[in-house]
Write a protein that binds this DNA or RNA. Structure first.
Length: 241
DNA sequence: AACCGCCTCAACCGCATGGGG
DNA sequence: CCCCCATGCGGTTGAGGCGGT
């Protein structure tokens, strides 16, 4: 009985504390990445190998970008997802400083609105419908507040590669939302040749995106691939198809 | 002020994959 | 080959924060 009581009181999600981060960071910086089982044993952290690896990969690694996605990043995610589906690690590989987990969460919470709505309608079919009427427009404002209120790693919106400040970003998002309200999820707009994407296609970690093993590209229009990725490495890959 | 429901995202889980013996 | 182990990946969960009433 006492045991089950203790189990109930124990939080199921074990958030990383700043001191744990410090330990893991210093251990990895000293001994290098890899051998996560050993890391979890020798660092003194009461964490599993997977947990250590995930924490390092998603939060402690150098050059991790925290904060909200820029519009350019958002555009890229949409395009990449249309091409690749839920290949989050591949998509994240095209977004320097972003992790697969972050991209996945961003997609599920901000971009995959239709899917979420369907899911929630299914879950709450006989309960409060309040959210169905207006859940398409206030998510970004909430997100901005949340970004500012980061607990462990409070940071300014460094996500904007071009130095866009938060207020401007919010204004721009509101404009986008108004457009979206008229025709939500308008993929024609995204794939249109008139739809400009400003961010260069910079591979993460100075690596080249490898299309050789991607059967998905066999079925795609080369022009559309160029339209979506617009970089010379793709041209080279396309030549080999 | 208190309660309730929704939203976000960090963390977990299970399966897949790859490499070494 | 087969097995084992480490790592990677994508789906899912749930704690905490927030806004609405």
């Amino acid at each position: 009985m006492e045991e089950s009581k203790a189990m109930k009181q124990q939080p199921k999600k074990n958030l990383w504390k700043p001191e744990e981060d410090l330990i893991l960071r210093s251990y990895v910086e000293t001994h290098g990445e890899g051998n996560w089982a050993i890391v979890s044993q020798e660092s003194g952290l009461m964490r599993g190998a997977k947990s250590c690896r995930l924490r390092w990969k998603n939060y402690l690694r150098p050059n991790i970008k925290r904060g909200g996605m820029s519009k350019e990043e958002e555009d890229l995610i949409i395009r990449m997802h249309k091409l690749l589906g839920n290949r989050w690690s591949l998509i994240a590989g095209r977004l320097p400083g972003r992790t697969d987990n972050e991209v996945k969460n961003y997609w599920n919470t901000h971009l995959n609105k239709n899917g979420l709505q369907d899911k929630r309608k299914a879950n709450n079919s006989n309960s409060c419908k309040k959210n169905d009427d207006n859940n398409s427009d206030d998510g970004n404002n909430k997100k901005q507040k949340k970004v500012i209120n980061q607990i462990y790693y409070p940071q300014p919106p460094i996500c904007s590669d071009n130095g866009t400040d938060l207020a401007h970003d919010i204004q721009r998002r509101n404009q986008e939302e108004n457009r979206e309200k008229q025709d939500p999820w308008n993929m024609d707009d995204i794939t249109s040749s008139h739809y400009n994407i400003n961010s260069p296609m910079i591979p993460a970690n100075n690596t080249t995106f490898n299309f050789d093993d991607e059967p998905y590209f066999d079925h795609l229009d080369p022009f559309f691939l160029f339209e979506a990725f617009g970089c010379s490495s793709v041209d080279a890959s396309l030549d080999n198809m």
